[in-house]
Structure formats: structure tokens, C-alpha cells
Design a protein around this nucleic acid. Structure first.
Lengths: 212, 212
DNA sequence: TAGATTGTTAATCGATTAACAATC
DNA sequence: TAGATTGTTAATCGATTAACAATC
């Protein structure tokens, strides 16, 4: 129905959402694309183009109602629904993710954490129990799981992907440093921390060269 | 000197590096842009264009030597140098980052972790001592610090940015969910986990709509 | 009504892909 | 030498910006 919206646009939507949330907190009622443009350091034209991919949220001569636009973008991003997350890999990163209380406010709820290490069995992270991997199939059958977050070592990632796909999970938030090979009805969002660090490193080295 | 290379290209370099590393591990000696293209699911044309931003690393009729190309991309990304990192915020995420042994292999070394919580003072994460924030200025003066990783709550981020900038640090790896306002000789790489999760959420909701 | 600002079309710019001559 | 494959130029495609008529 919605014709495909370019990923460049999608990438910017959470940023709009963030800025509008801040404006809302500051009690700002309305904002024009021009003011927002100055605030966010993007062109007003881009803001209007981006938003109009999803509909006309503004009003000529007035601008945008902050609260309304904030809520609409929230709906676009699916933040009006609850997303149940399981975390596979109870290492530091798994801990970190499950502790992000802020996510909960946006409707993301960690309902299970899984690991292979028997030493962790029965433990809890903020009242979410750590379970062993062999309990995963039963758990997914008895709970609604929307997202599997992958925080295990990359060597295990492909195997885990096969498992969760076979259990019917349709979305993976992948922190393991490999590309997963998935059926096309399963969506994956990669967070490659080491790629990110390398990009930073590139720019550092580049700046040093320019200084000379 | 190097004319500006588009960020789209830079973003792809770590991925090339990753794939070439895997090929190297598999004992593959040479590869053509065409084979790599199939492997990575990008066009061969793009691979050749991307690489030729930095120089001619291949040979007509032969392709690319995997080892050589791997090392050259490593140099481009600055992985032939050591980068000392301090982590500000010793929460779960700070722990996770400092425990990424893999980063060390690429020349990224955590040399200090800082927090405001006195309960953490004197603790260690993998033989790196947790220090209090008031020790930071002295630490930066007596150690070479290339990167400050921001894993504190977003409310503290801007203030920390002012501090590390005033101490002469030129690169920030920012996990706090705000945009930092920085002088233009300071480079920042943002990792906005909640933005990432929202993009995933968008695609989940989108897929469900399409199913109907 | 006049002024402001959107929604949208048109123009520009940049990035990706295709093509092919150069050359190993 | 003939075949393969790069490096690079040209063509295409998509995304961003500019402009402006519609309208609140």
C-alpha cells in the first residue's frame, strides 16, 4: 500500500522524533519547518519532503503542531505498539540492552534473556530471568516474541538465526559482527560496533593528515 | 590532500575489510571485483569505484590480492595505529565496550574508565581501573587519549563533551542519545541505539501491514 | 484580507551503475 | 598472444534542494 519509502528517509525519522520530543518537553506548541531546520541543521525542504512521504501533518501559514507531529511519527515508527524482545547472549552487552529502561517507555519490553552458560542459569537481570538456550523453542511458543536481539559471539550468530527463524521470529536486532543470511520476510537491523569504531578511526587519521 | 571522500564510501570500507578478513582466514589469495560482488551483494562496479577513491589496489587480468587489499584498507581506516580509548560511564554499556577484546586486535585499547559513582571507585574491568570523574583532567594530561567513548546518561553528555574538548580530546564515540554540539575540529561518531531500534520497529510494522 | 508557511513540482546535485579502453 | 579484469569515463538513477502556487 504505502509505496516504498527510501531508507534515507526512514533513518531520519527517529531523529525528528527525538527533537520533537525535546520540543514537547520544553512546552513548545508549534514549529515551522524553517525553525526546525535551524535546530536540526537540515534543510527545511528536506523536512517537508520527508514528512510528506507519510502524509500532510502541517498547516499552511501555521506550521506543525509539535504534539500532533510527535505522535504521528511515533505511530509511523510503530511506537504505539508493544514490542516484546528476547536477548540471546547474556554478556555485558545483553545486560546493557536489557537495562535500557528508556526503551520500555517506547514500548519495547525485554521478556527473556538466553545464554548457553549454565553458570548463569536462574539468574535475573532486572526481574527478567536468564534462561538456557534449550528452553528457547518452548518459550517462543508460549510467548509473543517480536524481536530477537543478538548479543552472542559472531561464531554463534548464524546458527541462532536459523533457530529463531524456524521458530517464526520475524525481526532480528543484530549486534554480532557478521551479516546474517535470512529469508526475505525476516528483517534485520545491524549494529556493527566495530564498523562504527573504524569509521571514527578513519576520520581521526584523516584529520591528523590534514593538520600537517 | 586527499579530496573529501563521501561518507557513503567510508561507511562501506569496514564491511570490505570484514569480508576480506574472512577470505584471508579461508586462505583465499586473490579475488576479482566480480566474485566479491557476488559474496557481498553489491555491484562490482561499486567495489571498483570505492577502492579507486584511495588508489589502484588491483591488477588488470588478475583481480585483487586479498592480503594486500586487506592491509591497505586497514591502513586507510587507521587500523595500523594504536588508538587509546577512555570510557566515560561505567554502566553496563561501558563494561561491554571495555570488554570487547576484539577491538584490541584492531589497535583500540581501553586505558581508563571513569564514572561519578563513588561505589565504583577503585574497581577494575579487565585490569583497567575505574576512576572518578575528578581524576579525568589529570589523567588526560598524563596519557595519550585518542577517543572518549560516551556511555553516560544523555543528561550528562553535553557537559562531558565540554570537558573532554577543553582537555584537547579530538574524537568522541557517542552512545548517549543526544546530538553533541562540538567545535569542528572534534569528530564524533554517534551510535544511537534507540534510533536503530525504532528503524527496526518501523520495518516490523510495515511488514505486518503488507501481509494484510 | 494579508502574511506565513505548507505541500508539491521542477531543477540540481551526487551517487550508483554501465560500458569499455587500457593493460596485466 | 589471448583472456581476464581492472581503472576510469560516461550514462543513469535517486536523493536533495529550490521555487512557488495553494491555502490556512
Amino acid at each position: 500500500m504505502n509505496k516504498d519509502i527510501s531508507s534515507a528517509v526512514i533513518r531520519r525519522m527517529p531523529r525528528y522524533y527525538r527533537y520533537l520530543g525535546d520540543l514537547l518537553d520544553d512546552g513548545i506548541e508549534r514549529i515551522s519547518s524553517n525553525e526546525l531546520s535551524r535546530l536540526m541543521d537540515v534543510t527545511a525542504s528536506q523536512i517537508r519532503q520527508d514528512l510528506n512521504n507519510f502524509g500532510g501533518f502541517g498547516q499552511q501559514g501555521y506550521g506543525y503542531n509539535v504534539q500532533y507531529l510527535y505522535e504521528e511519527i511515533g505511530k509511523i515508527l510503530g511506537l504505539d505498539q508493544t514490542h516484546n524482545i528476547i536477548i540471546i547472549g547474556a554478556g555485558n552487552l545483553g545486560h546493557a540492552l536489557s537495562n535500557y529502561v528508556r526503551f520500555e517507555k517506547r514500548g519495547f519490553l525485554t521478556i527473556g534473556i538466553f545464554d548457553v552458560n549454565p553458570a548463569l542459569a536462574g539468574g535475573h537481570i532486572r526481574n527478567v530471568q536468564i534462561r538456557m538456550m534449550d528452553e528457547l523453542p518452548e518459550f517462543v511458543k508460549t510467548h509473543k516474541v517480536d524481536i530477537a536481539a543478538f548479543t552472542m559471539p559472531k561464531e554463534k550468530a548464524e546458527e541462532c538465526a536459523d533457530l529463531v527463524v524456524s521458530l517464526g521470529i520475524k525481526a532480528i536486532w543484530n549486534f554480532a559482527n557478521v551479516e546474517l543470511d535470512l529469508p526475505q520476510d525476516v528483517t534485520v537491523e545491524n549494529v556493527h560496533l566495530s564498523d562504527s569504531l573504524m569509521q571514527l578511526s578513519y576520520r581521526i587519521v584523516q584529520n591528523r593528515r590534514n593538520d600537517r
